[in-house]
Design a protein around this nucleic acid. Sequence first.
DNA 1: TAAAACCATCCAATCGTATTGTTTTTTTTC
DNA 2: GAAAAAAAACAATACGATTGGATGGTTTTA
Lengths: 224, 224
Amino acid sequence: MPTGQPAIEPSRQEQKSERARLLLCESTVTCLTQYGYAETSISRVLAIAGVSKGALQHHYPTKEDLMAATAQHLLRRPLQQQPWSKQDRALSDPATREAALAKWLKNTWDKMINTGPYQALLEILLATRTDPVLHKRINRELEDSIRVIDEHFCQQYPDLNQASKAQLQALLCANRCLLRGLLIEAQYGLTSAAQKLVLKQWWQMLTPLLLGHFDSTSQLGETA
Amino acid sequence: MPTGQPAIEPSRQEQKSERARLLLCESTVTCLTQYGYAETSISRVLAIAGVSKGALQHHYPTKEDLMAATAQHLLRRPLQQQPWSKQDRALSDPATREAALAKWLKNTWDKMINTGPYQALLEILLATRTDPVLHKRINRELEDSIRVIDEHFCQQYPDLNQASKAQLQALLCANRCLLRGLLIEAQYGLTSAAQKLVLKQWWQMLTPLLLGHFDSTSQLGETA
DNA sequence: TAAAACCATCCAATCGTATTGTTTTTTTTC
DNA sequence: GAAAAAAAACAATACGATTGGATGGTTTTA
């Protein structure tokens, strides 16, 4: 039935609109990674997208609308990040677990943080510090995004008590922070070898603590 | 002898000039922390400093000059950071060492990273990613600043072989990165308690590795 | 025919910089 | 050592370019 449930298939106009919005957001991302937040202007985004000013203003009336939409676009991207293993629960073997975790850690850096889109997101994030209006528009989605990722990670653990979960979240937060900071550090005077060494060292510190919570009896590095 | 060696005491004009430059740089810092890089304009700095446009342009002809000088001003600040102990070498006792290190770690966060001036520096650093000209002007001083801090830290160790030093530098870099990332994370949805937990966890992971290099025999978490 | 998508142009405001003039300090010269 | 010339510090204003946003018209889709 073509029109059995109305609004189930997007109309041609809706498709067009969505494609246009996507193009604009992606152009904004390109602009942010290439020129930074301070130098990201409406006209520059327009030039990259190859559309007119009126088109942009039709979809996103103000620059703030465009930025909020772009942030949303960027935040929804990493949620596709795979968990430890494609198939659920093949992590009964400790060695498998460690390998899967190592892969996840590496993946987080290679495919999530150390990428153009994340640079763009970082530009927006830093800008929101001094832009309360934009901050308010993005904050909720941002917190949700983090929560989902953390939750997703924790679900790999069979049964997690409150204290263990708190520590895990702290470790995940630390991981985010370190990688984010490393992305910035990598801009100046950090050789590729030095960067690898830092990552190796960090993962070496992190891995046993993350794996430790699988056996509820042995909890390495317990806090308090 | 007042004029024994000429040009030893700064002339009145030089004093005036230096005071003006300092005022301008500090106003720029205020502007950066308050409004961010994108919203830091000449006129805003002028308003904060309370001087005329001509005055600024006399000391710093272009905005880039002002930013470079401000970055320099900010980079020279943290070098006053104290080492582990005020007096050299009172670290023979392991317990004293640990206490001194804990203090140093806490101090690095409280007095160096988690501050307005560092926020300002971070704004400039992120901006340099997409501003090659500014990047080039600042890069050397930036690298030097890091190197000095690292070197200063390593000097606390009596005799350090090459491998140990490499690991120490990786750990110090990781520390910088994590704290920098935490500063950004703290902007959104990170409770004060959660932040403390992350810091506590991180310091707990870091401390034994940093202290391990005092005894050249036992090297914890050795790499490769 | 109405609405959505898109385009071309215009607008006031602000950007960073250049220009010119005034005041203060330093240097030169008698 | 005081007057004159030079230079530095600072101020006021002007300038072209660009900013984000507004307006009115044209094409496409419903």
